[in-house]
Amino acid sequence: MTITARSVAPERVSLDEAPRYTPVKRRRRLLPLRLRRLQDRLVAYGLMLPSMAVFVMFFYIPAAYLIYISFFHWGVLSSATKFVGLANFRILFHQPLFFHSLFTSAYYTLVMIPATVLLSLGIALLLKEAVSRRSRGAGIWRSAVFLPHVTPVVATSIIWVWIFNPHFGLANFVLTHLGLPALGWLESVHWALPAVIIDSLWHSLGLYVIIFLAGLSTVPRELLEVARLDGAKRYYTFRRIIWPLISPTTFFVVLLATINSWQAFSQIFAMTGGPHGGAGGPAFATTTDALLVYQTAFIYEHFSLAAAMSVILFGIIMTLTLIQKWISDRVVFYR
């Protein structure tokens, strides 16, 4: 019925009677330019506010407070907070364990960085080759390489503890079958840190492979084709073309690996704790700086001392990053 009524309606309306549609003029009062700019700025800050609030609340305030308490004698439960100046730092510089932990962290980092770059770039190159040759399962391999990175460190570290078990672990099984001597791994002062490094590499490699794959995809295909026509062999092409062109990616990977290595904690804690005594063993062989910070704060309850250690750790990472940035400005090629 409604449809009929609607269809009939226009016939009854003569042209004179037809409603006239006049455009409604919206008179918007424009604010002066200065006020409009202020308005825009306020909107922009308003949009940034939630994330800024989270950052300030959970990052900047704790970080600033950490630096603050490093100059105090401070306890979680004690109400007495006493300013001690650089005393905490002085104590640290008289602690051989602190220097040992710095050395362990440096060792861990110095092995992790080249191993990370070499292995992840190598795997990325192989995967890229597989994709360009349209090899079957290239996509599956790419996912498989990334998979360890998305698994929880603690869970996979426990599996690695079994693998490195000196009595029935897979690592020694393989070594003995290859005619090599079995190793003490996590029970050995010399081999505990390499075992942790192997686990860390396995866990973190996927992320770096994906970053390198992204970097490799930015190298124009034509350049590689020209190099082939120019008679450049694979290694020559890699060294003269691919390596310089992916240098920004390599720099990023080195930076990320440096920061992550100096902060390494979870895998060491999971692998060397429990049945092997306190984490960081045997005989402090795997006590890195980050682990010592944790133990000082939450086991020995010297929060101020731990804060001072963190400040030093922050200083080290900051210095290394600045050095890398200085080097990168001279070595890295940005298109």
Binding site: E222, E225, V226
Partner: peptide, 30 residues
Amino acid sequence: DARSVGMVFQNYALYPHMTVYENLAFGLKA
């Protein structure tokens, strides 16, 4: 590389990190 063919691409495909001299010398050095 065994065909001794020289090719010019639509977008030139010059090695961006090398100078003109290095670009020209690349194939000879290789």
